[in-house]
Structures are given as structure tokens and as C-alpha cells.
Design a protein around this nucleic acid. Structure first.
Lengths: 361, 361
DNA sequence: CTGAAAGCGCTTACAG
DNA sequence: CTGAAAGCGCTTACAG
């Protein structure tokens, strides 16, 4: 590998002079500087090695991290995560940096790592700052980022004192979502949710499970559902919650099938469009007509939702990413950042919700 | 920031012992090791700082780079790039690492960087290896990666001696694409291409421009078109090539409009599905019926192609990514890698191609 | 089985 | 305006 020492020898100057040529050009005469740059070009020297310079000068690597739950494969499948990334990269200044995707297991180490105390390389000084997306409360990575003094901004979850937050009013948006079907007259309602805890469990879930969920978003959302039911005089204990244990429509389809077969709800409320799409598939398998036999409402307004004519709650994921990136870069530039940015949501009524069937099926 | 020295003090051992606890556990008694790990836990120490360890031990950072042309924003918009990334992350072992996206301008530096000789941070020792996607021949980043001895694998372009390559037979696939419309009887054919050179030019392009293109894929593809025309006795000089200068369907729409208005071709051959979708939009604007008035064929078989009923050439982008990731990880593990992996392509006939109109419009 | 010391590539006070 | 030297956090021969 070609280093500053090589360039210095080639240019006939000291190694420090080469460093100045890149970092403090004013300290060198223009002639010397040109001579050094010419030597660097001849040798194919790409500029100061980031690892060396970062170590010396307190850790700026030029990389910005995005901390994602689960595997990268999942992240790229998930519409919300994709939109978030799309928004993050809209911030053009990121093109001068590296965007480092860091998939975090629930323990914070690399998937399948042996020693408990070793964490993901992404948590060991490789990034200058981090955008954290939907991590469980108290995820070990959060403590690590704190211990490393890594500037960060959180999108959606968790809420951390002193850390800029970008999100929506999950509780109110969920209440609005459920109210839509309540207003249409539904009373036999079920909820389908991706997961309440990252422990692989699936199937019907009781109150204790969501109340104690470590995932802020789902806890708030279901809290909102409860509020909406109470406001409409519907007993929330009679509203089933089924947990899919995964994030893709296919898994949702089988869970939704079970829900339909067991409980024959007239409306199913999903915590994402992916889940709602699974419900639609399950309904189609059973020759149920939507919305005549079954109403379905999603959440996100992902690109697929419009094509499917899905009624949903729109949340601005792309904007979340864009704002998070902008806050993080402000932080990295030494600026002050807004403590909390709450974006608006909106009910989008399309073709999958309507009044319940006359006799309740 | 908490360092090894802090952990050593906390555990009452030397700093070297802490290093051994992580890197050479066999050199320590189990008791001492446990004592050190406990101290690390108490302090929130995430394991050896990557920057320090990388500097000392010859540069392994745990990050894998993906070198992308243009901005990240564009990369996330482009269906091929998205599929490539999707494939890359299928290789689950990447979840133990960081996936670092590195957007390269045509000069190799950060967008808008001043000093000519300073290159993107991603090219200065931050990644252990790189997947290079569709870079122009002789892009400076390639020389840099060589100078840094960074293991790499190239997807699509350029072809580099001694560097593993993953791609398709672009020339043959393009010939098959054009032959499809020739076989249908078209003779008034035009070609719409994203860009021949990254110099911002757009509009009709002459032979010299594509023959000398520094982009391997487009050079091969158009070479294939020429071969197909010759084989069918069609004079390739009478086939117009229009350059969009961008990669999105919207830009393609206006270029295609110009093409249709000026030349009234009966078939338009596009080098990507995104371009073909733009052609479809331009045809719709002009009330042209596809394929009755105009045949359109794309390339890629991107997810949008099926929905649009687009006839196209399928190329396995996801597999390219998966294979490239697997080759790179093999290289990083010190293994041998295949020199060249050529994946199959396939003509997918849908609803946008048919015989030319009886009187040639 | 453990510790002291050198050095990876760099930046930056400090001295000339 | 330029150079010699210290030290960032770590690993690894080497000595005890």
C-alpha cells in the first residue's frame, strides 16, 4: 500500500509536509504543494489513509451509519426501510461520504458471534454518526453509541433523552386508522401486527404482550387502537391481535387466514401495508369479497398500496429519512439539532374499506 | 471514548491482556479473561476499536464496499442497482460486516471536491473489499483500489485483467433483443439509450460516439445491435440512436417523443426497462397504439416490466449481486475466485411488440 | 501465563 | 516556510 512516507520520498520532502499538502495547504508554498501532489499522482496515492488519519485526529472516518434491525436482506425487502433509505440518500451531501449499512441482531453483535461482549464492527468506531431506525428500547447498540460519543438521530424508535427524534404520532395515527372502520360500523374487528417482540413467537397475543413490548411503535399503535375502541364504546378485550412474526405479505397471508377462519371478523386492521396485502391475499383465497365481506386497512401508504387500491394511513417515510440525514449532518458539522420532528399522517381511503356486511356474515 | 486502557485499568491487567482477551483468548487463563470481559461490560466497551486494530494489523475494517456510479439518490432509483443490492445482501454473511455504499463521481473524488488528488473516503482504506458496479473503463477508482491492494469483483463493467467479473453476454443479448423486432418485420427501428458517455450530452448520437464509449456495457450492446442488423440485411447507419442523458422514465419520455415525432419508427429498442417505460409514456401521449402502431422492447425485466406488459430481455441482476458478494467474501477469506461468471439472459415476449403496421404508419 | 515495547499511517503542536 | 517528534488505539513478537 502506498503511504505518505512513499509520497514524501518521491517528492523529496518530509512526511509531515505531505500531510500539510492535504490538510493545511496554506502552510506550504504553492510550488512545494504542487510538487507533492504530482508525486502523489505518480504513485496513485489516493490521499491520506482514513484509518491513520482517523486514529490520529479523533475518529472522523467520513462514514455515516444506518443502524437497521434484523438482516440486510430483510431491510431491503421492507417497504418502510427502503423508503427511509431513499429519503436518507436524497440528502446530497452524503455523496461525499460513505453510507454504511449496519444490520443489528437483537443482541447487538454480528449474527452468530461467540463472545458476548464483542459487538458489530459498525459499533466500534467505524462511523462518524448514526441514523438509528426502529430499534427496540434498550438495544445494546444504543448504549454503545453513547459510550463512543457517536452523534445519532433516531427514526421511529426508541425515544431517547437528548437524542434527536424523527417520527409520527403513532398513537394518534393508529387511533385514526381504527376509527375509520369503527365509523363505518364495524364491531367485529381484528388487528394483525408484524411482531410485538423479536422472540419469534407468533399467533394470538394477549394484552400483557403488547403492553410490555419493547418496540415503541407497536406499543403506541396498539395503545391508540385501544383508545379508539373505548371512544366508540367497543370492548377492546374482544378485539383479537394476531402476531405474524415476520414482515412479508406471504407470512401475513397465512396468519390472516387463521384469523378469518377462527373469528370471521368484518374488518382487519394491519400495522403495515405489507400485512394488509397478506390479508387481501388470504381473503382472495377464501373467495371473500373486499370490502363487501371484509374491510382491510393498512398503514404506511407504501408504493404497493396504491396499486392494490388499499385504504391506508399514509406516513412520510421518505421525508423521515431526508430529515434524519439532514439532522445528522448538522450534528456532525457541530450544529444544533431539533429535539423532535413529528411528521403528519393522513387517512387515504381507497377501495378496501366499507360498511360491514348486513348480517355480520 | 472508552478504550482498552480503560478496560485494563478497570480489570487490573495490562492493556495487552485486554487485547488478548478479544483476539487470542487461548493465551489467557479463563478466569482472567472472564474478569476482563466483566470489566468491559461494566464500562460499555464494545470491543477493540476498528480504527486502532485496523491500523495495527494491516487494514481489516470489517466493511465491504459497493462502488456505484453517480449519486446514491440515483442508485436507489435505478432498478438494476436496486436489484444488485438486493442480491448482494442475500449473502447472509454480510450481516456480520458493514455494507458501505460508495457513490463515485466521474472523477473519483467526492462530488464537488476541490483538490484533484483527493479521492472519496471510501477509496482511502475504509473497506476490506469492493464490489464495483458499471464503472467506466479506466475510472480512477479502479487504479486506486489496485494501489491499495483492495480485493474486488466487478459486476457488468469494466472488464479488468485479473479481477473476477460477473455479468452477461451483453453483445449477444442485445443482438437477440434487436433480432426480435427484425424477425417481426420491422425495418424502421430506433434505439434509445441512457447515455453513451457521462458528459451530459443528449440527443441523436453518431457512430463515433458509441464506438468510443468508455462504458463497456453500452458499447457491447450497440455492437450487438449492429451485428443483428447486418445479419438481417438492415443498414445500421439508418438506425437512429438517441441518448437520453439520464436514467429515469421521465427523461426517456421526452427523448422518445422527439424520436417518434422526427422519425416515426415502427419499433423502438431500449437499453433498459426504464427507458422503454418512457417510450410507452411518449406513445400514449401521442395516442399511438402499442404494439399496433409502435413496438417497444426493453432490457432487464425489472419488476415494473411485468406490470406494464413490456416485452424485454431478462437479465438476472439479483443473482449477479449474490454471486459477486459470494466471490468477494471468498477472496477476503483468502480463497480463489472464478475469473468470469457469465449469467444467462432470456427474451420475454409480452404485449408491447408485434408486426409493424401495414403501411408503415 | 503475563507484561513492556514497538510500530501501523497519520496530524499537529513545537522548534528551527 | 519546513522538519522532527509525540501519540491516537490497537496487535504481536519478545522477554520474563
Amino acid at each position: 500500500m502506498v503511504t505518505m512516507k512513499d509520497v514524501a520520498r518521491e517528492a523529496g520532502v518530509s512526511q509531515a509536509a505531505v500531510s500539510y499538502a492535504y490538510g493545511r495547504p496554506d502552510r506550504l508554498s504553492a510550488g512545494i504543494r504542487r510538487q507533492i501532489m504530482a508525486a502523489a499522482d505518480r504513485l496513485g496515492y489516493p490521499g491520506p489513509n482514513i484509518v491513520g488519519s482517523s486514529l490520529r485526529s479523533g475518529g472522523r472516518t467520513g462514514a455515516v451509519g444506518v443502524m437497521l434491525m434484523d438482516t440486510l436482506q430483510y431491510a431491503f425487502k421492507d417497504a418502510s426501510t427502503r423508503s427511509l433509505l431513499e429519503g436518507i440518500v436524497r440528502h446530497g451531501r452524503l455523496d461525499e461520504r460513505c453510507l454504511t449499512l449496519i444490520p443489528l441482531s437483537s443482541e447487538g453483535g454480528p449474527e452468530g458471534s461467540k463472545p458476548q461482549s464483542i459487538t458489530h464492527p459498525g459499533l466500534r468506531g467505524l462511523v462518524d454518526g448514526a441514523i438509528v431506525h426502529s430499534l427496540p428500547d434498550n438495544h445494546p447498540a444504543l448504549m454503545t453509541l453513547r459510550a463512543l460519543d457517536t452523534p445519532m438521530v433516531v427514526v421511529d424508535a426508541p425515544e431517547l433523552p437528548g437524542v434527536p427524534f424523527v417520527g409520527i404520532r403513532d398513537r394518534e395515527a393508529a387511533a385514526q386508522q381504527l376509527s375509520h372502520v369503527l365509523d363505518l360500523g364495524h364491531t367485529r374487528i381484528a388487528i394483525i401486527v408484524e411482531r410485538l417482540k423479536p422472540d419469534g413467537r407468533k399467533g394470538f397475543a394477549g394484552r400483557a404482550r403488547w403492553v410490555n413490548s419493547v418496540e415503541r411503535v407497536v406499543r403506541e399503535r396498539i395503545g391508540g387502537y385501544e383508545t379508539a375502541c373505548e371512544a366508540h364504546g367497543v370492548d377492546f378485550d374482544r378485539v383479537s391481535i394476531i402476531e405474524v412474526g415476520a414482515f412479508d405479505p406471504d407470512s401475513a397471508r397465512s396468519a390472516a387466514g387463521r384469523l378469518i377462519d377462527d373469528e370471521a371478523p368484518t374488518a382487519i386492521v394491519a400495522t403495515s401495508d405489507a400485512m394488509a396485502l397478506g390479508v387481501l391475499a388470504a381473503a382472495a383465497e377464501r373467495q371473500l369479497s373486499v370490502p363487501d365481506d371484509l374491510s382491510v386497512i393498512g398503514f404506511d401508504d407504501a408504493p404497493e398500496a396504491a396499486a392494490a387500491g388499499l385504504t391506508t394511513i399514509r406516513q412520510p417515510m421518505v421525508e423521515k429519512g431526508e430529515i434524519a440525514a439532514s439532522i445528522l449532518l448538522t450534528l456532525l458539522a457541530g450544529g444544533e439539532a431539533a429535539g423532535e420532528t413529528i411528521l403528519p399522517t393522513e387517512l387515504i381511503v381507497r377501495n378496501t374499506t366499507g360498511p360491514p356486511p348486513p348480517h355480520g356474515t
